[in-house]
Amino acid sequence: MKRISHNAFTRITAALMFGCFSLAAFAQTAECSKKVYLTFDTGNMSVAEKVAEILKRQNVKATFFLSNEKTFRGDFSLDDSWKGYWQERVKEGHHFGSHTYDHTYFVKDGPKGEVFERPQFGPKAGMTILYNEAAMCKEIRKVDQRFQELTEHPIQKIWRAPGGKTSPVLIRMGDMCGYQHIGWAAAGFLGDELNSDKHPNNVLLEKASRDLKDGDITMAHLGIWSRKDPWAPAVLEQLIINLKGSGFCFGLLPKNSGNPSK
C-alpha cells in the first residue's frame, strides 16, 4: 500500500476541515434565513421577570422601550427598586429605547410646529399640554438620562410614541433630537393588551406564528392591567420556538446594529 506523505496528509486534513466548516456555515445561513425584532414596552412590569427568563433560556435578544410607568408593585418602572432588573438586561446584551418618560400620548398637532400631548404619569398626568421641540426632546431624552443613572449605560438613540400615535411633526421632533422613531409591523402587534376572552392566547400564538414576515418588528408589554389571562409566558416562549423552526433569527434595534440571536 502506498504511503501518504506528511505534507499530503496535512493538505487532505485541512481540506476536510475546511469542508466541514463550510458546511456548518452553510447550515447556519440556511437555518437563519429571516429576521424578526422582538420589542417590549414597559407596561405594569407584572411579567417582566418571566419575559427575561424566557429570553435568556432561548438565547434571544430583544429591544425594550421604557417609560416611568406605575407597576403592579405600586412603584414605578424607572425607580431605584428596578435598578437590578435593568442592570441584568444590560449585561445580557439587550437594547433599550425611550417610550417617553411620563408615557406621554400624542393628541394632535398644534400651531407653529408644536404638538399637543397628554402624559399618563407624572405631575401633569391627564392634562393636555402643548409641547414645542425642546419640551418633546426633554421628554424623550429624560429616559436616556435616567437609564444611565440606573445602569451607567445609555439607551440606543431610538424611541416609540405611546400607543404608536404619531404625526409627521412629532416624528420630526424626535429626529431633530437625535432619536429615531420605531413603530411595529401590523403582524407584529402581538395582542397582549386585547381582551383575553375574545382573543385567547392560542389564537394570538397561531396568528403571530403564521403572519410574521422577514424584517417585521413585534410589540408586546412587560405587563398589562387589562388582560385577564396574561399573554406572557403563555405565548412568548412557544412563539420564539415556532419562529426559530421557521428559519427566523432575532435582531436588535435599530436595524443596522447588533448581531441576530437564534
Rank of each mutant, 00 (worst) to 15 (best):
S261N: 08
P260W: 10
I158N: 03
H103Y: 11
E117C: 15
L130S: 13
N201Q: 02
E206T: 02
A186S: 08
A135T: 04
I4M: 08
R57L: 10
K124D: 05
P200L: 00
T128K: 07
C249M: 15
G188A: 02
V235N: 10
S22Y: 03
K207P: 03
K70A: 04
R146G: 07
S67H: 00
K165S: 11
E133P: 05
D75W: 05
F65G: 04
S67G: 10
K91A: 15
L16I: 09
A161M: 15
L130M: 10
K124Y: 09
Q180Y: 05
G188L: 01
F76E: 11
R3M: 03
M173F: 08
P162T: 08
K112T: 14
D102G: 03
S98V: 03
C177S: 03
V143A: 08
L23V: 06
G251N: 06
R118M: 15
L222M: 15
P254N: 02
R11C: 01
K70H: 01
K198N: 02
N7G: 06
K56H: 12
R141K: 07
D211I: 07
T71I: 04
N132L: 04
E237N: 01
N7V: 02
G164V: 12
R89I: 08
D214H: 01
M176D: 14
S257W: 03
M17T: 11
S167Q: 06
H94Q: 05
E117G: 01
A25F: 04
T100M: 10
C137N: 04
K56T: 10
W159P: 08
Q238D: 09
M173I: 01
L78P: 13
I171H: 15
I171R: 12
L222A: 00
T218C: 13
F9H: 01
E149L: 11
F147C: 05
E139S: 13
T128G: 00
L204H: 14
A208F: 06
K213S: 14
Y131P: 12
A232P: 05
R141N: 07
N201S: 13
R227K: 03
K50P: 00
F18R: 01
E193Y: 02
L55P: 00
G97N: 09
S81R: 06
I171N: 07
C20Y: 11
R57D: 13
F189T: 11
R73S: 14
S226D: 04
N7M: 05
P168S: 03
G163H: 04
L38K: 00
I129N: 10
C32I: 01
F40A: 09
L239G: 06
D211E: 14
A24R: 04
S22Q: 12
Q156F: 03
N59M: 09
R146S: 09
K165D: 13
R146W: 09
V90W: 03
G110Y: 00
E237S: 02
A135K: 12
K207I: 09
